[in-house]
Design a protein around this nucleic acid. Structure first.
Lengths: 237, 237
DNA sequence: CGCGATTTGTACGTATGTATT
DNA sequence: TAATACATACGTACAAATCGC
């Protein structure tokens, strides 16, 4: 009999309601016996459930299942970790029609360097893309890719998934993405490209992406119209 | 000689530039020797650095220091984990003057239940608080506290820090907070209470807070005016 | 209030797997 | 292909928080 994945099994039980707020998870000792595995493996599985925001471990007490797990799961589009490349750049739903508004190869000057953190003199691709769903322009992506790390970009690639290109053709690994979200007054290009209607503000998601050599290869601003995305976070104490 | 904290020491070296993008961290083996500790402890320290977004581990290669660490640290108000209670509810900067706009003890009806996830019939404190800095109303907090779990709240407590009260007087532990951020059109009460100027949108940060019994004791909406906060996230692949 | 039992957290040692160079 | 270096896994011991008697 092949060993089952402890994490997946426990997650299934929590999401199906077998384990819930009224009880605690079985103790580590019991899980070790049930799954015929080591304490290390059981603790690793529980760690993942904690990251998911499903449970919380208390020293001396046990592992508690959080209330309203099912509902708050539904509330969020992407609770917990995002492990899908398409989902990363903007959002699954948005990837319907992509229009290239601008595609240039430029050299970083002082102003751009300050914003993107790329050194002055670096050649970069500056790409503006519009994300359209049902004839509404929901998002404007302004990408800055280091052309030394991401070479030979074309409009055709940009019209599809640049991340797919990086992964498949360049065989480069995306290691870490640091993101920051702000709300800002809409800029001229936001008014020009987005279906803002009456709104005069946009969400601005700034992303810095790093490869597994630690090098920053991307700076991106994604400008969203209001009411069309959520951003989630789980904080443990 | 007392043992030094491996995590803090490595973090110090990275932030001071002793370790940087040009090199990798010493191997686990070397750190074990230098700090005279076990592999477990070294790996635990590196795990924390990964959570901070400072480094990235690659199997077979080593632990890489991410580029632009210093700059991107400065960019963010609260990169990484938030471990300060004051910082949690809204933001450090905002805690200057707090005005109670409304303070009620009510019973959850169907409409409120759907939003807050509290069961119908639960007694709750509904509190509206305005966060004012330099004569600008930057944020409107709308708190719903389960009165069975957070009893005896008063306007005086609400004018200060409710979290401090929970921690010190109720001796309850805040275990997990799930957050969601959206951008929405300003509501009537937003126009009434916030210094919105020309903006017609607000940031809406929804927080669900849980104690270490897994019970949700709070639902809060924090409505912010644009341009006055950032929201950060680090994603590892 | 104290004490012991329970349960998770931290720590160390060791062995084997797997990706990179 | 071999060496290197992180990832996973198991076993063990003790610390620290919680809970019930």
């Amino acid at each position: 009999m092949s060993k089952i994945n402890v994490y997946e099994e426990l997650q299934k039980r929590i999401l199906s309601g077998d384990y819930n707020i009224k009880m605690r998870l079985p103790t580590e000792e019991m899980l070790i016996k049930e799954f015929d595995t080591s304490r290390y493996s059981v603790r690793k599985a529980i760690e993942q459930l904690v990251d998911d925001g499903l449970v919380y471990s208390v020293k001396g007490k046990g592992v508690v299942v959080l209330e309203n797990t099912l509902q708050s799961q539904k509330l969020n589009l992407n609770l917990g970790k995002i492990d899908n490349l398409q989902a990363l750049n903007t959002n699954q739903i948005l990837n319907r029609k992509t229009t290239i508004a601008s595609f240039k190869l430029i050299i970083v000057n002082e102003k751009i360097s300050k914003k993107t953190l790329f050194p002055i003199g670096t050649p970069i691709y500056l790409i503006k893309r519009i994300r359209n769903v049902n004839n509404e322009n929901l998002a404007l992506d302004i990408n800055y890719f280091n052309a030394q790390l991401i070479p030979d970009l074309t409009k055709e690639i940009a019209a599809g998934s640049i991340y797919q290109y990086i992964k498949d053709n360049l065989q480069m690994k995306i290691a870490v993405v640091k993101r920051q979200l702000r709300i800002e007054p809409a800029s001229e290009s936001d008014y020009k490209y987005l279906s803002l209607k009456d709104s005069n503000c946009v969400g601005n998601m700034i992303s810095l992406a790093f490869n597994d050599d630690g090098k920053q290869f991307e700076y991106t601003e994604s400008h969203f119209i209001p009411d069309n995305f959520v951003f989630t976070q789980i904080i443990q104490f």
